[in-house]
Structures are given as structure tokens and as C-alpha cells.
Design a protein around this nucleic acid. Structure first.
Lengths: 232, 232
DNA sequence: CTAAGTTTTTATACGCGTATAGAAAGTAGC
DNA sequence: GCTACTTTCTATACGCGTATAAAAACTTAG
């Protein structure tokens, strides 16, 4: 029964998504606006909203296509390495998407086709000996770190893009060396140091710490200080 | 010489910032728009732009006031605990600012009055035995994790605020249990598990891993996989 | 053929951040 | 007092995401 009731659609969700891909490819991220996209598919802006709930959903659909196309890396067997490798792949995938920041305000799962990453990381954590609940927590912690790093990376890129007097230079110029000796010591090297890619380093530290914590009976080398594990 | 040349200002940067504070206090974050704020100080919207570069700068100024007023916690002496305590304080401070997400797209330093946090964390890392460069890297890694966690937290709050069918429920409903066994195993408990506050846990793991890594001569328990420490 | 019902598309409008151009309101030099 | 010069503020406009209401284009029931 291909005959449906109601006015026949002029555009489809797939049309919209593929037009969005084309648009981004051809004219860059900034050209992807609902109005421009509507012109591209030959409809009015509001027509789009019958096919996607809002712009954020559209970006998620784009990301989903993107995630589906990403190659999945060979994974090492050792659980810790496996977690790290999957997280690095996730990071690499996200870092390649220029509009990612607009979608990273979402939660931890992103799109259906991206679920391979949490699945793999959680599975590796379980194989490392963590109970399922803690493995989920470990994944989320890794996710938070990853999303935060990507966001900062995008911000840094943006900063270089604009001409602005960097603000940080101003901060370090008017820095009170008595109150903030370490920062003063770093001084002008801040720019240089923060240009380095420390994702891998942080990730390895994080994984090491998570597995250490999860396997040991003692909670952590850091004594619990009373205010640091409330439930929100 | 209090006599300056040019048209005398009707409003000042301080006026704007304090009006913004009032506005947020009285009517919530969403009411803070440049146009509304202009009405509040009795000027046209564009007049504001002679005192702040853009809205993001305004938010940074607000955050700066906020950071100045935040109490600074007693810090333990043991370096690892000290790092964690400072980071927890930073996290707590940020988590209390509802519009923080709009400002977290910025970089690592935020505002002048917030510099106490990086200073303290870096100092503690140095006391723990890390060379200065690695201490800075450690701080940035902690920052990325913290910013990411705050962003996700805000997203979760937003999600609860809207009525939307959660999308995650939909994801887990149509989940391919063969391809994604761990996620299927978690199933409906995802919502519950991800509502938990894991910041403290992740932070302890991170600090432990960072200090482990920094002090040991070997790089990490994770073998370097070749693609994970490029410089960008 | 017509009337009702359903789905999709259009028209219009709102408030947003902010770019640009120029008017307003002072001081300083003559 | 007039003219320059400087600083600040106003007027207008653009494109953005999207809410709301109505029109358009079908199918189905009678």
C-alpha cells in the first residue's frame, strides 16, 4: 500500500541530510544554516522542520552518517590498551568534524552509528575486571575527558582564526607574580605549551587510574575528602 | 586630570556587568540578552558594544566576578590530594554557574580571578615531582576533563527540562543486542547509571594516573600505539 | 462530485547577536 | 566663538533559529 494520505512530500529527511552534506563540503560549516539549506533543497525554511525536530537533530544525523563511515581500528587484546585504542579512535573521529562543538553539548551517546565506541570501551573495561556499573562509569569519565578536550581544541583553533589580542597574553602580562608564582614562571611559554596535543597522555593516565582504582579494594590513593562524591 | 575628551559616557562597563547580574538573579539566565540588558541600563543595544567586545566577553566578566567571590578551600599537604582538592573546588565553582556552557567553549584559563585554580593545581603537581612542563600538561588534562563533565552535566539538566522522548530510550529500544552486547546488557539502566555523579571518581583516577606516569621512567602501562601522540 | 480528514508546505512574525554608518556631545587649539 | 578632533551613543539593517497559523495537495467516505 504505497498510497498514503495527505499532501505528498516534496522533500525527505534524506534529501535534507544529503543536501547538508553537500553544502558543508562545498561551502564550509558556516554555510549550513536552516535557511540556506532550505534554498538548497528548494523549499521554505519551515518545511525542514517537518523532517527534523531542530538544527541540533540535523547535526546529529550528519554525525551519524559520518560515524557509520569511519573505519574501526584493530584493537589490541590487553584490556587497558584496548580501552585506550578505542577512545583514541573515538577522539580522532570527533576531532575531524568541524561543527562537532555544536553537537557536543549533547550527552554521552551521540548517534546510533557511534555506539560502537562506548560498546567497545565498556566491554574492554569489563574484560579488565571492572564490574559492569563501574565500566559504564569509566566510559562516561573517558567520554567527558574526550568531549572536553575536543571542545578546547576547537576553541583554540577558533582563537587562532580570529585576530583578537588573545586575552591570554594580556592575562600573563598583568600577572601578579607574588600571588601566582607558577603561572608567572610559565609566563610566555603558556601559548606554546598549550598548543601541544596532550590527549593521548591524559587518556593513558586516565585509563591507568581507572583500572588501578577499579581493581584495588582501597578506593584511591587520595583520601576521600567528604565533599567529593555527592550524587548531584 | 579628570577631564577627558569626547562625548561623556552614559553607561560604563561596570554598569553593564552589574545590570547583567541583577537580570540573571531576577529573571534567570535566559533573560540575559544584549537587547534586554540594554533596556535595563537605559541605552540601545549597540551602545553595549562600546564597553564589551561581544556577549562572550560579557559572560567572562560575569564569571570573573563570580570567581572572585568563591571561597577557596583548605588544601591538604599531600600533593595528589592537593591537586584533587583544588580541582574539586574548581568543578564545584563552575557547576554552580548556570550559563557556564556558553563560556566553556573558551579555552583553559577563563578569567583573571579564576587563575587561582590553575596556579594551585600546577603548583601541587610540581610538588608531586612533575617537571613544570608536565605539570602544565597535567593541569590542562584535568581542565579538559572538568570542562567536559560540566558540559555533559548541563546537557543532562537541559534534557530533563525539556519533555523530549529522551532519544536514548529510543536508542536502547532499537538496540542490536548482537552487535552491542554490553550496551544491551546495561539496557534501561543507562539512564539511572548516567545520572550518577562520577566527577570525583574520575578525578581521583586521573590524578593517580598522571602522577604515576610522571614519576615512572616508563611511559605508561599502555604501549604507545604510534598514532596517539602527534602534536597537531 | 463533494465534504471531511490528513499530511506537508508556505507565510508571517519574533527576538536574537551584531555589522555598519552616522549623529550627538563633549574638549582643545585658534 | 568657530573649527577640528575624539569618544560615545543611536538608527538601521542582516541573517539567524524557529513559533504559529493558514493554505495546499492529497486520500477516503458518502
Amino acid at each position: 500500500m504505497p498510497a498514503r494520505t495527505g499532501r505528498p512530500p516534496k522533500i525527505s529527511r534524506a534529501d535534507i541530510v544529503s543536501a547538508a552534506h553537500r553544502l558543508i563540503e562545498a561551502e564550509g560549516t558556516e554555510s549550513l544554516t536552516m535557511r540556506r539549506l532550505a534554498r538548497e533543497v528548494g523549499a521554505t525554511p519551515m518545511a525542514l522542520y517537518h523532517h527534523v525536530h531542530d538544527k541540533e537533530e540535523l547535526l546529529l544525523l550528519l554525525l551519524d552518517d559520518y560515524a557509520a563511515a569511519m573505519p574501526r581500528p584493530e584493537l589490541p587484546d590487553e584490556p587497558g590498551e584496548r580501552m585506550a585504542a578505542a577512545a583514541l579512535a573515538m577522539h580522532e573521529a570527533l576531532a575531524g568534524v568541524p561543527w562537532i562543538v555544536d553537537v557536543l553539548r549533547a550527552d554521552d551517546l551521540l548517534s546510533v552509528n557511534a555506539l560502537w565506541y562506548p560498546e567497545t570501551i565498556i566491554d574492554a573495561a569489563v574484560r579488565a575486571g571492572l564490574p559492569l556499573e563501574r565500566a559504564v562509569a569509566a566510559y562516561r569519565i573517558i567520554w567527558h575527558y574526550t568531549a572536553g578536550e575536543i571542545t578546547a581544541r576547537a576553541a583554540a583553533l577558533r582563537r587562532r582564526g580570529e585576530g583578537r589580542p588573545t586575552y591570554r597574553r594580556q592575562v600573563f602580562a598583568t600577572l601578579d607574580a607574588e600571588a601566582l608564582p607558577r603561572l608567572a614562571e610559565v609566563g610566555g611559554r603558556w601559548e606554546e605549551l598549550t598548543a601541544r596535543d596532550t590527549y593521548g597522555e591524559g587518556l593513558r593516565a586516565l585509563v591507568a587510574g581507572l583500572l588501578l582504582n577499579g581493581l584495588a579494594t582501597g578506593r584511591s590513593f587520595v583520601k576521600r575528602s567528604g565533599s567529593d562524591d555527592q550524587m548531584d
